[in-house]
Structures are given as structure tokens and as C-alpha cells.
């Protein structure tokens, strides 16, 4: 298939061909095993202006996530719930193909997968951040940007979003309730804050299948050559809270095979988060 090289640079083509040759021999760049993640570096509080933030390096993939809080009106069908908005963008700096402009379907899919993980996991107690039911609630914004894209954006962005949320500080709900009359005149950034308590930690693990072989944490070149990409998001309880088949198809058996690998790897990433001070 020559067409996958359309719009690719020579360096990228070489990387892709190299990845294919290596995977055929069960090898990966940097002597990585099929079930090994690249090095992960998590740093929180990297953006001082946000209420919460984190920068994650997953090999050469770099993601920055920021959390912001605002006051807003709840949705009509959920008057007793705070609002969560998760949006991600691949910045034009991220790769040759990345383009500025409104999010494309790839960016939307990634954002929605991470959104579902956070939303469905019960990570956030949405009822806790209601000021006046049906009128005023806290809007929770989680924005992430891919600064450099070397594949497996979902796992990296999920770690960044989770780390930013888990270390965020939220304006005190009690304080806002007491000062609700003057709330239009005060700057939300100046309201006294408290720790944003998360109730769960969702971990996303993306699994690739190449010629029947299961591998984790595909880099950008590997993403091009694998037949299948699937993401499972797990909770601390071992339950699954989100699944997304991103590319290709898989046999019925492979569904459960990749699920098991994702579960094992979720434990590993959970441990790394814990080592960075992020746990329940």
C-alpha cells in the first residue's frame, strides 16, 4: 500500500518501514518489548495560571493538560449536576501532518474517548459542585494539547487529564454559595480554593495488533502499520468504563486477549501515577 505515504516526509516513511521490519521480527525501536510502554514522565502544576495542570511525556509524545473552573447554567435534563467539558487539540507543532484549525474527526474522537473515561468512571462527583440546582453549577473544563505527536496520544492525554484533575484546586463551593449575590462582580480566580477531590482514576490503555501479535503503546510509525488499535479504560476496581475500537477489526478472541493485556497495563500506569503522588 503506497498510499499511506501520501503527505509523509522521507524521515516518516523510513520510520514506518523500519517499524514494520522490526515488528515482523517481534522487535521495536529502542529494544522495547511488545508489551512495554515507553518511558513515562508526569509533571503536575506545569501551568500556574490554570486551576490544575500536568505535562506528560510518553516517549517523544508530549501532552499538556489544563483544568479550569467557571460558573454556568446546568443542562436542562441534569439540573443537579456540574458540567464537564473535555476538549483536545493536536497543535500544529505536533507533527508534519498536524494542522491548525477547528478539531478534525481524529481530535474529536480522542477527546470523546477521554471524556467518556472521566465522565463514566465516577471520577468526579457531579452533584457536589452545584451552587443553586437548575441555575448555577460549576463548569469543569479539561483542555489538553498535543505538543509533539509520536503516537498513542490517548494514553498520554488521559494521564495528563487525570493528573491535572487530581491535583487541581477548585474555588470553594461554600464560599460561592455565601457570596452568590456578588458573584458576578468577583473574579473566580480570586475565590479561596480547596483541593478538587477525585473519586476514581480512569486509566486508558491502547493496544495494537500487528499480524496477530498484540502490542502496547504504539508509537506514531507503529500506529501506521498495525492492523488494529483499541483502547480500554479501566477503573481502580478493575471494572471497564470505556472501550473504543479506533482502527481496523479484530476476532472475537482478540477482543478478550487485548482486554486482558489492557488490564495488566492499567495496573502498571496506575502505579506510575501513584509514584507521582496521584492516587485515591
Amino acid at each position: 500500500m503506497s498510499e499511506k505515504y501520501k503527505n509523509k516526509t522521507l524521515a516518516e516513511i523510513i520510520n514506518i518501514e523500519q517499524a514494520k521490519n522490526l515488528l515482523n521480527k517481534n522487535l521495536r525501536k529502542g529494544d522495547r518489548g511488545l508489551l512495554d510502554y515507553r518511558d513515562i514522565k508526569i509533571e503536575t502544576g506545569t501551568i500556574k495560571k490554570a486551576f490544575g495542570s500536568a505535562t506528560v511525556n510518553l516517549g517523544d509524545t508530549v501532552v499538556v493538560a489544563g483544568v479550569n473552573f467557571e460558573l454556568g447554567t446546568p443542562f436542562i435534563d441534569t439540573p443537579n449536576n456540574a458540567i464537564l467539558l473535555v476538549e483536545g487539540e493536536i497543535l500544529p507543532t505536533a507533527s508534519v501532518e498536524a494542522e491548525a484549525g477547528p478539531p478534525d474527526e481524529h481530535e474529536i474522537e480522542i477527546s470523546r474517548v477521554i471524556d467518556r473515561g472521566i465522565r463514566e468512571s465516577g471520577m468526579i462527583n457531579f452533584e457536589k459542585y452545584v451552587i443553586i440546582p437548575g441555575e448555577t453549577v460549576i463548569k469543569i473544563f479539561v483542555d489538553f494539547n498535543i505538543i509533539n505527536d509520536d503516537g498513542n496520544i490517548i494514553d498520554a492525554a488521559n494521564l495528563a487529564a487525570v493528573a491535572a484533575l487530581a491535583t487541581a484546586e477548585i474555588p470553594k463551593v461554600e464560599y460561592i454559595r455565601e457570596h452568590i449575590d456578588e458573584v458576578n462582580n468577583i473574579n473566580i480566580k480570586e475565590i479561596p480554593r480547596e483541593s478538587f477531590k477525585v473519586e476514581e482514576i480512569p486509566i486508558a490503555n491502547t493496544i495494537g495488533i500487528f499480524d496477530g501479535k498484540v502490542l502496547v503503546d504504539p508509537d506514531a510509525a507503529e500506529e501506521e502499520v498495525v492492523d488494529t488499535l483499541i483502547t480500554f479504560t479501566h477503573l481502580s476496581t478493575g471494572e471497564i468504563c470505556s472501550v473504543q475500537l479506533l482502527k481496523g477489526g479484530l476476532t472475537y478472541e482478540e477482543v478478550f486477549k487485548t482486554l486482558d493485556v489492557a488490564y495488566q497495563k492499567n495496573l502498571e500506569l496506575r502505579e506510575i501515577l501513584k509514584n507521582n503522588g496521584i492516587s485515591l
Binding site: 467518556r116 465522565r119 463514566e120 468512571s121 465516577g122 483499541i230 477503573l235 478493575g238 471494572e239 471497564i240 468504563c241 470505556s242 472501550v243 473504543q244 475500537l245 481496523g248 477489526g249 479484530l250 476476532t251 472475537y252 482478540e254 477482543v255 478478550f256 482486554l259 488490564y263
Partner: peptide
């Protein structure tokens, strides 16, 4: 061909429940 070509899930399921639902 016995292949899965769309697979999504959201909510909470244990591995056993996932298998049963699948």
C-alpha cells in the same frame, strides 16, 4: 468472517459482565 469492526463501550462493567454483554 467473525470479526468485530465496531466496538465501543461506556459505563461500568466488570470483565465478566463485559463478556456476557459482548
Amino acid at each position: 468472517l467473525k470479526k468485530v469492526v465496531l466496538l465501543q463501550m461506556d459505563g461500568k462493567l466488570t470483565h465478566e459482565e463485559f463478556k456476557e454483554a459482548f
